[in-house]
């Protein structure tokens, strides 16, 4: 790679260095804004014992759900995992561990992780199973719990446009967790609908500055819709 040019030409190159028992942060909300090709590459690599941090775990047969088929995931850190029969089965069998985390806490854990903040206090989850065993403290008369931040060995991201330097723009609600996950990976890989030349994106409109990004790959996406609802 030359200078700031982060474009790689194969999925193998994009995910090079992924090993068993690593932690991978994945952007996406349901099936919206997920790096489809990078997930497929992880299945191809058959990496095992993975800890995946993502709001959801896809559905049976698509998205992160395909990594369950060969039991590649050891632990899932998510806010909602209800869309997936195989997930439930492996959870009940004890083959899969899940750490259910409130959605805002999950976003903040990644944001803080990427920003070098090891932990933060939040009112979310106080007095609930989520707060059990965690340090709590009162501020201005209200109790809060201490939540630790999250970083990953890899972050896998889906963007709409990225320039060769890794500056990214997301489209509509496909943004979701992608910007936070992008900041918190030791190696951050962005799969993108359109690669453009530096200078083509308006600097003040960049969602994820290229400093967070290590590799950019041109993807091709099915963009499956999880719940198609149209106006009557």
């Amino acid at each position: 790679m030359a200078g700031f040019d982060k474009v790689v030409n194969s999925y193998a190159e994009a995910m090079a260095g992924l090993e068993d028992n690593m932690t991978v942060l994945a952007g996406g909300f349901g099936l919206c804004g997920i790096p489809e090709g990078l997930i497929a590459q992880m299945k191809l690599m058959q990496t095992k014992g993975l800890t995946i941090v993502s709001n959801n775990c896809g559905v049976d047969g698509f998205g992160l759900g395909i990594l369950l088929e060969d039991k590649q995931i050891k632990k899932m850190i998510s806010s909602y995992v209800g869309e997936n029969a195989l997930f439930e089965q492996q959870l009940l069998n004890g083959e899969l561990e899940v750490e259910l985390t409130p959605q805002g806490t999950l976003a903040e854990k990644m944001r803080a992780g990427g920003a070098g903040i090891p932990a933060f206090y939040t009112a979310t989850g106080y007095g609930t199973p989520v707060g059990e065993g965690k340090e709590s403290r009162e501020f201005n008369g209200r109790p809060y719990i201490l939540e630790e931040s999250i970083t990953g060995d890899f972050a896998i991201i889906k963007a709409y446009k990225a320039d060769r330097y890794g500056n990214c723009i997301y489209r509509h609600t496909a943004q979701n967790f992608n910007p936070m996950a992008a900041t918190a990976g030791k190696i951050t890989v962005v799969e993108v609908e359109h690669i453009v030349e530096p200078g083509e994106l308006e600097p003040s409109q960049i969602h994820t500055p290229g400093i967070y990004v290590d590799r950019v790959i041109q993807g091709s996406f099915e963009k499956r819709i999880e719940r198609k609802v149209v106006a009557k």
């Binding site: 349901g30 489209r171 198609k228």
Partner: peptide
Amino acid sequence: ADMINAGKET
């Protein structure tokens, strides 16, 4: 597909 709500509906 890029426009959904928290219930994952379009």
